[in-house]
Structure formats: C-alpha cells, structure tokens
Computed example of a mutant assay.
Amino acid sequence: MNWTLALANETVVFPRSCSLIVVGETKEGSPFCYEDNFTLLKGSAEELTVTLDAASIHPLEKLHHVCFIEFSFREQGILYYALVDLLHLETKRNVCTLTLTAPLELKQSQKRRYPRIALPTRTPVTSRIVGVREQISHQNVAFTGQILDLSSGGMAFMTSTRVFCPLELELSFVLPGIAQKITVYGEIVRVAHFSSDAYRVAVRFHRVPDSTAALMEEYCSASGADS
C-alpha cells in the first residue's frame, strides 16, 4: 500500500488505532524492546503523530538509543506495516506523544510454516535484533541464549532477554561436532516463559542458503537417529 495514495483516497482516516514496536538500548547497553497499541492522531506525507496514555510510568523512560521502530495497523483483516524513524518524543500530563517519519510503502503480512526437528543438545547462540517482519535496520543490539531445538526451518532457544513477535534476529551458533559457524536470519513467532527469569523463543528462518539448510537438516537427522 502506498502511504500517500492511502491518505488521498482516505483509506487511512484519523484518529485510529495502530501499534508500535520500539527496539533500542538502555544507558547500560542492554536491549530495550517495547510493544503497545497507540492512537494515530494525524498523518501527512512526511510525518505521523501517535499518542499513548502513559498512566503514572513513562513506558519509554529507559530507552536511551533507538535502533528502529515499526509502525503497523490492521485494515479489513490485513496487517500493514513499515519501519519509521523517531523525530520527536514528548510526555505531558501522562500522555506520551511520538512524531515519526511517514512510510513510503506499507508491506502486508505473510505466513509460512516449517517443520521442526528436536535438537538433543543445548548450544550457545548469539542473537542480534536487526529488524522486524523482514524489514532490516542498519542498527542492531545483541543478546545471548541457548538453543533448545533446531531444524532447517527454525529453532527455539532460551534467553533471559525479554523479546517478542515479530522481531527479526540474526542468529550465530556452532553446532556440537561441527567447526563451521552458522549464521541465519529469522522472525520470532512465539515467546513463552521458560522459568521465572527466562523465556523460550521460537524463530522461523527465512532466506536460508541451500548449503546451510542442508547442513542443519543433515545434522538434525543424524541427531534424531542417535537419540
């Protein structure tokens, strides 16, 4: 969907509900991830203005540096989304107001399913939050975890970092018994509490090179046969 055309045709009217996903870093350099429903008050070909009732706590108080922001909304059951930049942030009388750059084009969501094969050995994984819904940002923030299961189509891992769907991750790991470092990209499709201080994160891979997919498929098949 072309944003300027959507405004001209009044496909997008104001005010309306929308969602923001904000990813950045705290002053300590830890990942900051926030998702919530906002009110889109107004928009033009250049800017968007969204607000959120912040109650007594400013939800973006710990945000020190913005890596990227995704703006999205649903229209007739279709999810439209795009990466935008933060121009200004202001909080007055418990109302948080963000001024954002307007998107040029809005993408539509697509769903795909992949089979999953259990991985018997937990393996360290380094994850970088690089975007959202296959939109890649030039800035990223890293955290670590342990792989719980793996396939050529996706993986699940445990981490103490709070993340959520549909963030895009760059995942780097070395499988036991294989010297080659594997780096793949994927979208978070599910997050659940693993324990009181950890989360189980399921990721669906995309654009995996054939050689890498074959390596993971062969490894998982061999591990399954040995278990």
Rank of each mutant, 00 (worst) to 15 (best):
Y114I: 11
P124Y: 04
F38W: 15
F32W: 02
Q180V: 12
V12W: 03
S17N: 12
I21K: 04
Q110V: 12
E134C: 10
F71D: 01
A55V: 11
F164H: 10
F38H: 05
A142I: 02
N94D: 13
S211L: 12
F73Q: 01
S223Q: 15
T126G: 07
S127L: 13
L104I: 14
F38V: 06
L86C: 06
H88Y: 10
L63A: 04
T144Y: 05
A225W: 09
C165E: 11
F164T: 14
N140S: 15
T183I: 11
L40R: 02
V201E: 05
A8D: 11
P176A: 08
S151P: 08
P124N: 02
V50T: 04
V22D: 04
L175N: 04
S160V: 14
E61P: 00
P59Q: 04
T161Y: 01
L106M: 15
H193F: 14
A222K: 14
Y185T: 12
L106K: 03
Y185D: 00
T39C: 05
R133T: 02
A142G: 09
V23E: 04
A142D: 11
I57C: 06
Y34W: 15
S56Y: 12
R200A: 11
T161W: 01
D226P: 00
T11S: 09
H88I: 00
V95M: 15
C96N: 04
G224C: 05
R162P: 01
I188K: 05
Q76I: 06
L106W: 08
E170C: 07
I57K: 12
N2T: 09
S44Y: 11
T11C: 00
V95A: 09
R207W: 01
G145V: 01
R112H: 13
R116P: 00
F173D: 05
T11R: 07
T91Q: 15
C18T: 07
D85K: 15
P103F: 10
D85I: 02
E134H: 13
K27F: 03
R116A: 08
G154A: 12
E105L: 13
L87F: 07
L98N: 04
E217M: 05
F173I: 02
F173Y: 12
K92V: 13
V174G: 01
L104N: 14
T161N: 03
